[in-house]
Design a protein around this nucleic acid. Structure first.
Length: 468
RNA sequence: GGCGACCUGGCGAACUGGGAACGCAUCGGUCUGCAAAACCGACAUGAGUGGGUUCGACUCCCACGGUCGCCUCCA
């Protein structure tokens, strides 16, 4: 069974191809660093990080590259507004971005190149395009000649005739042409030398240069938000394939849909944003990851407290099943035999999980398979206690599936051991209950809760659980 | 104006030409002194509307309505 991913370029699910070294190269467009990233920016980070994780757990070798764009109009603007050098602002925001995404606990990409570290490659790429007649210098700027690249518009499904360009093209031969290099301006406090004079790269060219340096031409997956398909990715294709006489740049173009808040997409320009760090701080990494994974990456995803609450409840359901397994494993009386329903559920869950994931990264179906397993685990433990060996196998398998979704944290053992003062309160409550002094018992229960432990009165007496 | 996508139960959300996953919420039950939590069970005879193709469509085609996206910075 092979993994297939829907490609915006072909409109179909395409099989993944490793490169000549057997590595699946994945390039995802990262943030432009001029402010802290919001929860919408986090979606591609999560999607592509988990994609890599899944492929690796499946036995593939991967290399994930997520760039950091640290030269851009907005960075100059934001730095000027703040009264700091643009390079300083970009560096600070880049650090902040790493910190914020680290909160998710999904690890780092294999490479996180910056534009400022790629100037040589960018200049060389532009030179190569000029040589081929695909680009032309104009008074310190360099522009890509869109009409000279035959495949232009294929990715975003538009033809040149229909396009209504802006009228900013004083120096351009054609309004559709776009900048590869922008000549130095007074208002910009950072610039680099080039054969066409001082200046800085246009938007788009940096990704062509970084992707090629890190992954070579013809890597497996290029992705990012769907709003980047045009013009950013369209222009990347034109630049990269133009400079290599049509050699394919990337095989699959994988785009995630947008988050939406109050029925319109979340975006910095509209201002309806929630910072990733705030959301993770409030809800926890597992809940945020589960929130993303419960919907398909190509679906628009509403963002609201209610959605996060749902995700949190879903996480709790899984945590509770793991906790129930651990309690059963820790119980003194051991079961003798394997439960046949549980054995079957284990096999089914694994199969359904992989079918869903291999079919265009169907994380909602994969999670559904996990929940089906969770239900059977609960049912089984409700009936009695199967053999320890089976419980351990089920636990291992469940955590394994969760790990492929970046949700292994849901299986972390919970320390339910209560400190002595809580145990004293518990004993006092039991004493009150024996006396039928329920007012005191309830007050003591509240005190225990305030100390961070829940009380659950079961058939075998009360148990304390660490509150989540 | 050009291009495109989407419309599934109270909410969120999948798969699929022939049985409508999964989560949340709700309701009922087990347990409990009562709760809470946990667990179990129930919950769309129907998939925006109207046509068409088909033995059969939520699933394919057409129209209409609605929502949204891109065409300018945007994950």
């Amino acid at each position: 069974m092979t993994v297939r991913l829907y490609s915006t370029l072909t409109g179909c699910a395409e099989p993944l191809h490793p490169d000549v070294n057997g590595v699946i190269g994945i390039y995802a467009c990262g943030p432009t660093v001029y402010s802290r990233i919001h929860i919408g920016n986090a979606r591609p980070f999560v999607v592509f990080s988990v994609l890599k994780r899944y492929l690796e757990r499946r036995g593939e070798r991967c290399r994930l590259v997520i760039n950091i764009t640290d030269v851009n109009d907005k960075i100059y603007d934001a730095a000027r507004a703040e009264g700091v050098p643009s390079t300083e602002l970009a560096e600070r925001c880049a650090r902040q971005y790493v910190e914020d995404t680290d909160m998710l606990g999904l690890g780092r990409p294999d490479a996180e190149p910056k534009v400022t570290d790629t100037m040589d490659e960018i200049v060389a790429l532009i030179g190569s395009l000029i040589e081929r007649g695909l680009a032309y210098p104009a008074d310190g700027d360099v522009y890509f000649r869109v009409a000279a690249f035959p495949g232009y518009g294929r990715l975003s499904g538009r033809n040149l005739v229909d396009m209504v360009p802006g009228d900013d093209g004083d120096l351009k031969d054609d309004p559709l042409d776009f900048a590869l290099w922008k000549g130095y301006k007074e208002s910009e406090d950072a610039w680099w030398d080039s054969p066409w004079g001082p200046g800085r790269p246009g938007w788009h060219i940096e990704c062509s240069a970084m992707a090629e340096r890190e992954l070579g031409m013809g890597f497996a997956v290029h992705g990012g938000g769907i709003d980047l398909a045009f013009p950013h990715h369209e222009n990347e294709i034109a630049q990269s394939e133009g400079a290599h006489d049509g050699v394919p740049f990337a095989h699959v173009w994988m785009h995630n849909e947008m988050l939406e808040l109050s029925d319109s997409k979340m975006s910095k320009s509209i201002g309806n944003i929630a910072l990733l760090a705030d959301v993770v701080e409030r809800w926890g990494a597992d809940t945020v990851i589960a929130y993303f994974m419960q919907s398909h990456y190509r679906s628009r995803l509403p963002f609201s407290d209610e959605r996060l609450r749902d995700a949190e409840a879903a996480c709790d359901r899984i945590r509770n099943a793991v906790r129930a397994l651990d309690r059963a494993l820790g119980a003194p009386e051991a079961g003798e035999s394997n439960d046949p329903d549980l054995m079957k559920a284990l096999v089914d869950a694994r199969q359904r999980f992989h079918e869903a994931m291999d079919d265009d990264f169907g994380t909602p179906g994969a999670i559904a398979a996990v929940f089906d397993l969770v239900r059977v685990i609960n049912q089984t433990l409700d009936r009695g206690r199967p053999a320890s060996g089976q419980l351990r196998e089920v636990r291992l398998e469940l955590i394994g599936l969760l790990d492929m979704l970046g949700l292994a944290g849901l299986g972390d053992p919970v320390d339910d051991d209560a400190p002595q003062d809580v145990l004293d309160l518990l004993a006092a409550r039991e004493a009150a209950r024996v006396e039928h002094d329920f007012a005191s018992a309830d007050a003591l229960r509240d005190q225990i809760l305030a100390r961070g432990f829940e009380l659950r009165d079961g058939p075998d007496g009360p148990e304390v659980y660490a509150s989540s």
